[in-house]
Amino acid sequence: MNEHLNRGVNEDVHDGVNDGHPEQRGTPVGRRVFLGTLGLGALGVVAAPDLQRGLEAFLGGAADNDPTGLTGLLPNGGGFRYYSVASSVPRKNANTYRLEIDGLVDHPTTYTLADLKALPQTRLVRDVQCVTGWRVPDTPFEGVRLSRLLDAAGVRPTARAVRFTCFDGTYTESLTLDQARRADVLVALRMQDKDLGHSHGGPVRLYVAPMYFYKSAKWLSGITVTDEVRPGYWEERGYDVDAWVGRSNGRDDEPTS
């Protein structure tokens, strides 16, 4: 198309009054810069795996020694990113927070934050992998095993899956019953050895260690046992329901659990 364009312009030159004027002749540097930029872009895609590995190592190290937090804004600069699908998220504290367990269970239950804290806590240290690419190494999560809450509620024989709802009013997630009973799936109260803050989904979030982080629903407020898997918020929008790290969503990241 570029060739064609220039021919058009040259024709203009020959019948124009500006024939021979400096702005109508000269080297087609613009086209070279344009094509060069396209070429560099293609080269960037090809070389990205190597470049990314190098940059992650460099920026990850820099982020640890960066008091300003500016490295966190660079692509793959390390650390967590805040994603919310709702327009605003209400804040809940120890007085206002409730977690309801219902659906195909014998004993529907409502837990307060204090109730959850009183149960035995499990601490896991794993990498966190987001489906958009960022990864945070060795992140401690602490909370109650989901299997313990399910057993206490008494799951009925017809149950096959678990659906999670959130007090942001929008987000939903789901797991099969087998996935939900894994020992590395927690109802998390603490992250990085601190109580979960609001921006990280506090006071209580789900933590599904072996799966991409969108499965670990923030601001968890409801657990409903169901007879089939109902796709969650992002899954309705094209993400995989079985979101094993490294084996789903067309990605080949190193497994996290």
Binding site: G41, V45, P49, T132, G133, R251
Partner: peptide, 29 residues
């Protein structure tokens, strides 16, 4: 040129089934 590179890589991230696995991470980068 940069706009077209953004368009191409953006489309690779948007329509994930059109390109091989590794390309998508590279396009994001």
């Amino acid at each position: 040129g940069a706009t077209l590179v953004m368009l191409a890589t953006g489309l690779m991230m948007w329509f994930t089934h059109l390109t091989p696995l590794v390309w998508r991470t590279s396009a994001t980068f």
